[in-house]
Nucleic acid binder design. Structure first.
Lengths: 356, 356
DNA sequence: ATGAAAGCGCTAACAC
DNA sequence: GTGTTAGCGCTTTCAT
C-alpha cells in the first residue's frame, strides 16, 4: 500500500505563466508582455504587479514552450573535432561569447575526431532545432543533408580550402548553385608559407614538415604553403612526417623525424598541439631547440605560450573568426548564395624558431 | 509592394508528425508509437508504411514539442570554470560520453572563472529545463536557488571538501536537513599528501607549494594535504605561492618562487596547467627539472604527458568521476538525502619529480 | 491495434 | 492597455 500523496507533496508543479497572471490579477498575455518587454505596452502599475508576482512565485518561463511557440530555440550548435585541443577550446569560447552577446546559447559538442559521432551530433542538433550550426569538420565536404532538410544554416569554421590564399580579409562569393556552404577561416596556405619564409630568413635551407591529416584525404593548404615557401626560395623540400593532430601524434612524428637519415634544421608543424608533442620528443633525444632544430607551429593557441621553448606560431585571429562566423550564420544569405571569408594570419615570433 | 509569397516558396514549412500520418494513411498517434517504439504496439504493416513516409518526407521530430509534452528536455547541463583547461575538457568529454550512452545530450558551458557568468548560466539552464546539472564551481557553496526552485538536481563535480580524505571509493551520507548538494570528487587532501610523501622519499626536505585559489576563500584540501605530508615527516613547510589556476598563474608563481631568498628543492603544484607555466619559468631561469627543482603536479590531464620534462602528477580518475556523477544525477535521491562520493587518486610517476 | 482528443506552457494576432 | 484565444508539434489516455 502506497502512501497517499499529500496535497502539499514535494513534487511542486512548476510555476506557469497562468499562475503569475492569476496572482497578479491580470491576463496571461500581460505577463508575456512584461517578460518579453513587448510586443505590446503594459501600464506601469500592472508591470509592477506582474514583476512582484513573478518574484513571489519564483516563476521562470519554460524555454521549451517558448521555443515551440516561437519556432526558434535560441540555441546555436557548434561541433569541434577535438574539444580537448586548446585551440578549439579557445575558438569555442570566442564563439560562445559572441553568441551570448546576441542572446543565443551555444551548444558545444565534440565529435572526438569520429565521423560517425559527427553525423550523430548533426542529427541531434537538427532535431533540437538549433537556429544554426558552426561546424569544424574533419571533412572537406561534410554531409549536411540533415541540416539542409531542416533548413538550418551552417557555417564551416577553420576550414581548409584550396582558395586559402589571402591578404586582407577576403571574401569569395559563390553562386547559389554552387552547393557549397558558408565558411570562414584563415589563409592556411599563406600563413604556412610566411612561417617557412621566416625560417628561411634565419638561414635554414633544410625545412621539414609535420602534417596532420583531415579525413577527406585532400591536400591541406598548410602543406601547399610550406611547399610553396620552400620552392619560391629555390630550396629542396625537407622530410614530411604525417601524424594525427594530437600531442601524441606530434611526439611520434618527432621520433620518426629524428630516425630519418638526414635531419632537417627546422620544421613547420601543422598545429600547436602537435608541436608540444614534438618538443617533448626532441628534448628526450637530447636535442636543443632552436639550435639543433628550429620549430614553427600553427594556430596560436594558449598552449603555445608556455612550452619550452615558447613556440613561434602562425596565429589565427580567433575573435574575428568567431564574430564573422556568427554574423554569417545569422544573416540571411540572399538567394542562397554562399560565401567564404578568409582572414590573414599573424606570425607570433618566440624562441622556438631562433632569434629573429 | 511586396511580392506575393508563392505557394511553393522556399520557406518550406517543417514536416510534422501529422504530415507523416496523412501520407501513411494512419493516425498521428500511430506515428508517435512507431517513432518512440511505444507505448502501444503497432501492426507491422502500418509500421512499414509509417517508416516509409518518414523517409519520404524527411521527417524529424521536433525536440521542443517533445520536451514540452514530456516535461523533460533530455538534456543535461554542465558548467566548468575553464573549458580551456585540458583537465576540465577531459572531464567534460567523459561526462558527455556517459550521458550520451543514456540518451542525454550534454550542454557544456564555460563560466570563464566568473561568478556572474556562472550565475547567468545556471539561470539559463534552469530556464531550459535541463534534467540535471553538473557543476564545477569555483565556490565551495555555490548559489543553487534557481535550480532548487526549478527542482533540478545538481551534482558538484571536482569539489574540494574538508572531508576529502579517503581510501577506497568512499561514500559519505548527509541527512536531508544538511542543505548540501550531492557531490563527487577525489580525495584532494590524500592525493596531495601522497605526492609530498613521494617527494620526501626522494630525500627532499624543503618542499614548496604553488596553490590556486577558489573564490570562497576557504582552505583548499590540497593545501591541507601538502602541509600534512610535510608535518608528518617532521619537516618544515617550504614557501607558499598563490596564483590563479592557469598557465600564466603558474608561470608567475615560478618567477616569484625563484625570487625568494631560500629556494625549495621541490614543489607541489595544485594543477597540471599551473605546472606547465611553472616549468616554463624554471627553464627560463636556467634551472634544471628535477635536478634543481623537482615538480609534482595535480590532475593527470592529457597535457601533463608531453611537457618537458614530463610531469609527475596526482591523477584523477576522470571516467569514474563522470560515470558516478551521472548516476548520482539520474538516481532519485531518497528523501532528499545528500551524498558525497570521493575517489582515491593515483600517482603517475614521470620525470619531473626525479628518479623513482 | 488504432483513432480522437486533451493537454504541455508560451507567443502573438485579434477584439475590445 | 488589456483580455481572449488559436495555434506551435508532440505524448498519452481513453475510447473503440
Amino acid at each position: 500500500m502506497v502512501a497517499m500523496p499529500h496535497p502539499t507533496s514535494h513534487a511542486k508543479a512548476a510555476v506557469t505563466r497562468d499562475d503569475v497572471a492569476r496572482l497578479a490579477g491580470v491576463s496571461p498575455a500581460v505577463v508575456s508582455y512584461v517578460v518579453n518587454g513587448g510586443p505590446r505596452p503594459v501600464s506601469p502599475a500592472n508591470e509592477a504587479k506582474v514583476r512582484q508576482a513573478i518574484r513571489a512565485l519564483g516563476y521562470r518561463p519554460n524555454a521549451a514552450a517558448r521555443a515551440l511557440a516561437l519556432g526558434s530555440s535560441e540555441m546555436l550548435g557548434m561541433i569541434v573535432s577535438d574539444a580537448m585541443n586548446p585551440f578549439f577550446a579557445s575558438l569555442a569560447r570566442a564563439v560562445e561569447n559572441a553568441a551570448a552577446e546576441r542572446g543565443y546559447t551555444l551548444l558545444l559538442a565534440d565529435s572526438q575526431a569520429s565521423l560517425r559521432t559527427e553525423r550523430r551530433l548533426i542529427k541531434n542538433f537538427a532535431a533540437r532545432r538549433v537556429d544554426g550550426l558552426f561546424l569544424c569538420s574533419m571533412l572537406i565536404e561534410p554531409d549536411l543533408m540533415d541540416l539542409e532538410q531542416a533548413d538550418i544554416p551552417v557555417v564551416l569554421l577553420n576550414h581548409s580550402t584550396d582558395l586559402a590564399t589571402a591578404g586582407s580579409p577576403a571574401v569569395i562569393k559563390h553562386g547559389a548553385g554552387d552547393h557549397g556552404s558558408n565558411s570562414v577561416g584563415v589563409a592556411f596556405q599563406d600563413g604556412a608559407r610566411t612561417a617557412v619564409e621566416h625560417l628561411i630568413s634565419h638561414g635554414h635551407e633544410h625545412i621539414g614538415l609535420v602534417m596532420g591529416g583531415n579525413a577527406g584525404g585532400e591536400l591541406d593548404a598548410r602543406e601547399v604553403g610550406w611547399h610553396q615557401g620552400i620552392q619560391d626560395a629555390g630550396l629542396t623540400p625537407g622530410p614530411i612526417v604525417r601524424a594525427p593532430f594530437t600531442r601524441e601524434g606530434g611526439h611520434r612524428a618527432g621520433q620518426e623525424l629524428l630516425a630519418r637519415a638526414e635531419r632537417p634544421t627546422a620544421v613547420f608543424v601543422s598545429s600547436d598541439q602537435q608541436a608540444v608533442g614534438l618538443l617533448c620528443a626532441l628534448h628526450e633525444a637530447g636535442l636543443r631547440v632552436p639550435e639543433d632544430l628550429a620549430v614553427f607551429a600553427f594556430d596560436g593557441s594558449p598552449e603555445s605560450e608556455y612550452t619550452w621553448p615558447r613556440l613561434s606560431t602562425v596565429a589565427q585571429p580567433v575573435k574575428d573568426l568567431a564574430q564573422t562566423a556568427l554574423e554569417a550564420l545569422l544573416a540571411p544569405t540572399p538567394g542562397g548564395e554562399t560565401q567564404t571569408k578568409i582572414f590573414p594570419t599573424e606570425l607570433i615570433l618566440r624562441a622556438s624558431c631562433g632569434q629573429h
